[in-house]
Design a protein around this nucleic acid. Structure first.
Lengths: 208, 208, 208, 208
DNA sequence: AATGAATGAGATTTCATTCAT
DNA sequence: TATGAATGAAATCTCATTCAT
């Protein structure tokens, strides 16, 4: 019940959709798609259930908006990295550093990634979008740089794509660890240190 | 029918019909916990909905049984590896090979792992079990071997735990890839080749 | 989708209720009382949803206004017929011709009649008004003329009220036909021809 | 979560669908499609809301079942009349008598007819079924007999279809009267007497 | 007088769970 | 042990009505 004297509702049209998306992200990340009750999203966003439907047609629509909204900054990052012409080792350091900061820092991204993994069967279009706009371009970028480095004789023979997976794998592991095992008491992973040590190891291991 | 002498109300995990567990695993993996309808599990198992409740108290109980049931072979594998006294490189090759075969071969395991990730917030006890019985022992085992190898001067300095994550990361990535991106058209990862190439790379990179 | 500002189109205040009533009649006739959304009424009337509440207290109030508004011309017609002192045959021809023109010509009237029929249980006051102001006076008028004609020996014995129903029945049938069966492909009834042929038949059949 | 108490439910599988249809007919006839709450249907049928969905997929599906279920006896009647080879006057007497008994006797039929009229815009398929299986065959049958009688010189010239409408119209009027005006205090129509007097009048008026 | 974002009660529909058979 | 019809709480979604602007 609202305190006496306070108006029953207020208008904040500009901020509403963003507030709803932020609240929805939290609840979806915690409960999954089906486990999320729009009641709770509305409460966290500080609006009524009905208000959600002023901005999003259905629950699935809201879910899609949450995921695609979280994608855009990552697309930008991949693009930025692709346009910067740098040698392989520097690019690898930049890329892994970026992934490490994302995994370690931004709760929202790891939450959304977990959602995409969890709901890939029920909402395959989200896995598609994530794959096409972030994952595949990223992998292609890295493996392209590796192939070029191989052509210059700076990297030993081997499948460039597998090298890329070998580089990125521990970052994925960290994300899963953070979302799954840390909440039940597992000691946290120092992702920055992992990225550093792993880079040193793999770059050395990739030399001819 | 049970033998006459058996206590009526004692439900042992091994007495639970394998068909129900198998059917439940399929549906849970495809739809998640909340998205799974017991109707569908019963239909796939070839029993009535009511029959499920002869063996499992609730839906959550069935879910827990599915996940813990899938854990046991992995526990065995980790134990077997722990008891075999082998040098680090051989152990690493054995361990990663085992993970690779698991990831690439057994749909059930990757499905369960995805479930544990997806439902870790709603069913943290499963993440706990998985972590305590499989993940942490495995990581401890590998990093112990690495520390021993470092003490013998066979591996360069560095955090043994991070080395372990560096080794296993790409296997986790492969599992996520298979469950999430392959179903939406991503090219499959040759996990065995990835394990081989990654091992060569990392082992070389870990030398003093 | 976010709302975009639109240029305000202002109309004369006193003109609005008629537009609202016209729009409401269309939607109520098409969808029934419960099936009508005030959103759609407002859109068709070219006003905002809130504006409806400046003129009508509730949806039911608007509905009543629509139906009672449609009654008044019919009341006038019945009164006009009652005041004109004409012989029975001529009155019957006039009355049935009027009904025929109403049924065949004015979509609004047949729509409202259908509404009154459909909603008589939920809004009995409308059936009451319609009955008291149009139907009963009309029936009484006709049967009074018939009784007078019988007294003069121009019409054979029989219940005058039933004679009246016998005359008007086909007009009611035509209204139902038009509203119910024509929209699903039934061939239309030539109501004027029906009225003519039916009058000839019945007047002949009523002769002593 | 499991409050023990009196026997919570009983099984009466054979009678269930018919009970639900009967209850639904009452409520739909009283409130219309949109105005009907499944809560009330379930309560009148003596079952839970969920039980309705064991027999009918949706509310609209239940509605269609109610209407089509009510049609079948009328189809039979029309068929029976069509197969009986009788002269026109006798057929007209039989047909109108049947309509009169239906209108005066069976509450369910007049309720369903009112429903079809009221919901013809929202559920046109019901108007279609009713028209194709009952109304049009009936009209065709009667007008065919009239045309034959005209060919034999027993009936004066005129559109046979319009003669048919002239005969049946008062029965439609009676049905509307009963459903709409009787509930608000209008004196009832003696439908049998109306049918008799109208037949005498029209048959006399149709003679050459 | 007019707007339209916001509300919240109420509707349909789903589905885990129960229990008479 | 097994069934599956039945339950009822809970979820999504709708829309008449309100009120700050």
């Amino acid at each position: 019940m609202l305190p006496a004297g306070q108006p029953k509702f207020r208008r904040r049209p500009e901020a509403r959709p963003a507030e709803i998306l932020a609240a929805a992200l939290q609840v979806f990340a915690a409960r999954g798609f089906q486990g999320t009750r729009l009641d709770e999203v509305a409460r966290r966003a500080g609006v009524s259930k009905g208000a959600l439907y002023l901005y999003f047609e259905t629950k699935a629509d809201l879910f899609r908006a949450v995921v695609t909204d979280a994608i855009s900054p990552n697309i930008e990052r991949v693009k930025a990295m692709a346009s910067a012409e740098v040698p392989f080792e520097q690019a690898a350091r930049m890329g892994l550093g970026m992934m490490a900061r994302t995994v370690a820092g931004d709760r929202r991204v790891s939450g959304v990634v977990k959602l995409v993994i969890a709901e890939s069967r029920n909402h395959p279009e989200l896995a598609t979008i994530w794959h096409e706009t972030v994952v595949e371009p990223g992998v292609t970028l890295i493996s392209g740089l590796i192939a070029a480095a191989q052509a210059r004789g700076e990297v030993r023979p081997g499948d460039p794509r597998l090298f890329a997976f070998g580089l990125m794998g521990p970052m994925v592991l960290s994300m899963v660890w953070r979302e799954t095992f840390e909440p039940v008491g597992a000691g946290p992973i120092d992702v920055a240190a992992l990225a550093d040590q792993h880079l040193d190891t793999v770059l050395k291991g990739m030399r001819p």
